[in-house]
Amino acid sequence: MPMAPGDIEDLIKAGIPGAKVTIRDLAGDGDHYAAEVVAEAFRGKTRVQQHQMVYNALKGNMGEALHALALQTSAPE
């Protein structure tokens, strides 16, 4: 069953407190999303570490309820 954009946003915000999250549905099918996540917690971390933090926040839904997620992560300017 596909995930709603609000559910994805809620999981990321719960796992990365203070994160600013923007979710876009790329295909209109509820399965392919893009997420932009800006969080102070990313400061000093590599891009791979940042993405791992987002995947961890999704609590195992990546590859299951959530088929594809294009990630753009950064620390605030």
Score class of each variant (00 low, 15 high):
52 Q>M: 12
71 L>N: 02
20 K>I: 11
1 M>E: 07
6 G>N: 14
26 L>P: 06
20 K>V: 13
21 V>N: 01
62 M>V: 10
37 V>I: 13
32 H>N: 12
56 N>E: 14
25 D>Q: 00
42 F>I: 11
55 Y>T: 13
58 L>Y: 11
66 L>H: 04
1 M>K: 05
3 M>W: 00
77 E>N: 13
69 L>V: 05
71 L>S: 03
26 L>C: 07
60 G>K: 11
15 G>C: 13
74 S>Y: 13
22 T>G: 06
44 G>K: 05
74 S>N: 14
41 A>S: 13
58 L>E: 11
29 D>C: 08
42 F>C: 05
9 E>K: 12
67 H>V: 09
42 F>E: 05
59 K>L: 11
66 L>C: 05
27 A>P: 01
58 L>D: 05
55 Y>G: 10
45 K>G: 07
76 P>W: 12
59 K>V: 11
20 K>H: 13
19 A>F: 04
47 R>P: 12
6 G>C: 08
37 V>C: 07
74 S>E: 15
57 A>C: 11
71 L>I: 06
57 A>P: 12
29 D>R: 01
32 H>F: 07
72 Q>L: 14
60 G>N: 09
38 V>R: 07
1 M>I: 10
56 N>P: 10
32 H>D: 08
6 G>W: 04
59 K>W: 08
61 N>G: 08
69 L>Y: 06
20 K>A: 14
29 D>Y: 01
18 G>S: 05
71 L>F: 04
23 I>C: 02
18 G>C: 06
53 M>W: 04
45 K>T: 11
28 G>P: 06
3 M>T: 06
13 K>Y: 00
70 A>C: 09
22 T>A: 12
